[in-house]
Each structure stands twice: as structure tokens, then as C-alpha cells.
């Protein structure tokens, strides 16, 4: 059987908030190392990869490899029934056709359980090559969300340009042009507010705002976001899940015809 117990249940709630606008259904692949999910959005423009390591759970048992196909809209509705401070346990028998979510209040006075049917999803997985990125930008997640929200008003694409001076986000459209430049922060008292850039070579790429906006739903998960870029390859937008994993969004660039 499979059983995973997470005392910090709100992490799982936030992971679903990070996925539900982009994916309607996906498979959770469970093994003794932990839980992974990989899926493309319906238009095959972006890919999401989630990893939750076993050692991040307070109890983790996975007797046999298990792939649980779920409707993420339904899963999100169930997880919304959990309070932010609830302990969340996910349980499933081997070869099961349903999964059970158990929500326990911290004082154990209230226990709720929800059973959801599983789906047969024959989702092929994509190989993601290890890449030594030309530029890796780390910035406050809320800052990135604000930049994308503001520039989305100007156009349907954002140009992200990284040089040694800093990183520039630009958008142009009918109402005009918007440019936001972020310089590397010199010294900050709080690490989480820093903007840091590791650059091997300058890189400039164009991406659709629609997907970047959906990625920033993961802002609730982590104080910082990491953007990794290389010429002519997908952008990686990564949010940590506590110290037990990550949500990684890959977005194909828009390329000159």
C-alpha cells in the first residue's frame, strides 16, 4: 500500500493551487524516493515537474511503484477542505482505483477523510536534458509576480534580457511599451529580498505572458523564484517546496519565424 503523511499539510494545498490553472489532469508517480509529477499543459507549450521527496514527509510508505492518475480540479476541491494547519495523509492500496485524503486538525479533535476515484492516464514522460544555463536569476517571488502582472497589460509577450548589468523585462503593444530593469542587489539584510544573477553569457528570450502568469500562482509556495535561461531553449521557473522538493515550470520560447 501507499501512505504519505505531511504535518505541514498547507504545502500540498499550495502545490495544487500552483498546478490547477495549468493542468486539468496528471499522474502522481509514487516510489520509495517520494512523489513526482510531470505533465504538459493541454497546448504543449509548457511542462510542469513536481518533486516531493520521501524524507520531507513525517511518514512515507510505498510498497510498490504506483502511478495515480488524478483530475487536479477535483483534487484541488478536496484539498480546499483541509485547514491550513491540518495534517494531510494520502493513502492508496496497490492496484487501487481510488485514493483517500485524510485531514487531521492539530489537536486531533477533527478528522476528515475524502475518497476520490483515480483515472487511467497514459501520460508519456519527456526527458529533460541537464543544462548548464547561460543565466540564472534569483529574485523575490512576489516581485516576479508583480512584474509579469504589470507587463501583461502591455502585450501578450514579455522579452527577458539578461546582461551583466542586470535583468530587463519588456513588453510592447497597442497602449505602448513597458520596461522593468532589475539590478543585482548589493547587500540585503534579508536573503529573500535579494536579486542575484549568475551569468555565463548574455541572453535574451521572448515568452508568452499567459503562461508566466499561470506559473506565478506558485508564489504562495516560496519567498524566492529562480529563472534559468539559455539561448533557444525553454525557460525554467522554479519554486522550492519547503526543503522537500520543488515545482519547476518549463516554457518554450517564442522564436523569430
Amino acid at each position: 500500500m501507499f501512505e504519505a503523511r505531511l504535518v505541514q499539510g498547507n504545502l500540498l494545498k499550495k502545490v495544487l493551487e500552483s498546478l490547477k490553472d495549468l493542468l486539468t489532469e496528471a499522474s502522481w508517480d509514487c516510489a520509495d524516493t517520494g512523489i513526482q509529477l510531470q505533465a504538459m499543459d493541454n497546448s504543449h507549450v509548457s511542462l510542469v515537474s513536481v518533486q516531493l521527496r520521501a524524507d520531507g514527509f513525517d511518514k512515507f510508505r510505498c510498497d510498490r511503484q504506483l502511478s495515480m492518475g488524478m483530475n487536479l480540479t477535483s483534487m484541488s476541491k478536496i484539498l480546499r477542505c483541509a485547514a491550513n494547519d491540518d495534517i494531510i495523509t494520502i493513502k492508496a492500496q496497490d492496484q487501487a482505483d481510488n485514493v483517500t485524503f485524510v485531514f487531521e486538525s492539530p489537536n486531533q479533535e477533527k478528522v476528515a477523510d475524502y475518497e476520490m476515484k483515480l483515472m487511467n492516464l497514459d501520460q508519456e514522460h519527456l526527458g529533460i536534458p541537464e543544462t548548464d544555463y547561460a543565466a540564472v536569476i534569483k529574485l523575490p517571488a512576489a516581485e516576479f509576480q508583480r512584474i509579469i502582472k504589470d507587463l501583461s497589460q502591455f502585450g501578450e509577450s514579455v522579452v527577458i534580457s539578461c546582461t551583466k548589468e542586470g535583468v530587463k523585462f519588456s513588453a510592447a503593444g497597442d497602449i505602448g511599451v513597458g520596461n522593468i530593469k532589475l539590478a543585482q542587489t548589493a547587500s540585503v539584510d534579508k536573503e529573500e529580498e535579494a536579486v542575484t544573477i549568475e551569468m555565463q553569457e548574455p541572453v535574451t528570450l521572448t515568452f508568452a505572458c499567459r503562461y508566466l502568469n499561470m506559473f506565478t500562482k506558485a508564489t504562495c509556495l516560496a519567498p524566492q523564484v529562480t529563472l534559468s535561461m539559455s539561448p533557444e531553449v525553454p525557460l525554467v521557473v522554479e519554486y522550492k517546496i519547503g526543503d522537500m522538493g520543488h515545482v519547476r515550470y518549463y516554457l518554450a520560447p517564442k522564436i523569430e519565424d
Binding site: H44, V45, L47, E124, L126, G127, P234, A252, K254, D257
Partner: peptide
């Protein structure tokens, strides 16, 4: 004009 590429032209199916 720039055209949107698909993610599965960059990452191969396993």
C-alpha cells in the same frame, strides 16, 4: 513576428 514553439520540440519523449 515570433511564433510560439512547443515544449515537446525541445524535450524528447522517453
Amino acid at each position: 513576428t515570433k511564433s510560439q514553439r512547443s515544449i515537446d520540440t525541445f524535450f524528447k519523449r522517453k
